[in-house]
């Protein structure tokens, strides 16, 4: 039987961040790359995102951050680990200063996309990060 290699991810804002445009654009880019995107929208706490990741059995989570709420992204990574969901990779994008990028990566965020990141790079990172680059359309 043919085994489908469809990738499923979550795209979400975290905390009181209401800037949805970036997340929606990335969700569309991923959709157009053949990925199934569970879009969670605004007002999500790390706990809510972790429960969604468990219910939906996703491979990665993309957080759009435009409100300097980096510590919540770190909290999300810690909470995933606590809930035996360490295999779920966390990516993060938005207006994130360079020194923060280093700090976030140190704390377990798999990749950070600062302003100016290309859509192609974001899509490739999701694909490579989830199926070790084996995925093809």
């Amino acid at each position: 039987m043919q085994v489908s290699e469809r990738i499923k991810v979550i795209i979400s804002m975290i905390g009181l961040d209401g800037h949805t445009m970036g997340a929606e654009v990335v969700a569309r880019l991923l959709r157009d790359a053949g990925i199934e995107v569970v879009y969670l929208g605004v007002n999500q706490t790390p706990e809510m995102i972790v429960q969604a990741a468990m219910h939906e059995d996703v491979e990665a989570i993309g957080i759009s951050s435009h409100a300097s709420n980096y510590n919540q992204v770190v909290e999300l990574v810690e909470l995933l680990e606590k809930n035996d969901l360490k295999h779920v990779k966390v990516f993060c994008g938005g207006n994130i200063p360079k020194h923060k990028v280093v700090e976030l990566k140190d704390k377990g965020i798999a990749e950070v996309f600062p302003p100016g990141s290309s859509g192609k790079k974001i899509v490739e990172t999701f694909l490579n990060g989830t199926r070790g680059g084996k995925w093809s359309n």
Binding site: R6, A27, R28, L30, R31, D32, A33, G34, I35, E36, V37, V38, Y39, L40, G41, N43, Q44, M48, A52, E56, N137
Partner: peptide, 14 residues
């Protein structure tokens, strides 16, 4: 076209 999807039901149920 691509098999991708935006699954946007869950966000109404937060």
């Amino acid at each position: 076209f691509t098999g991708g999807a935006i699954l946007g039901d869950r966000l109404r149920m937060i």
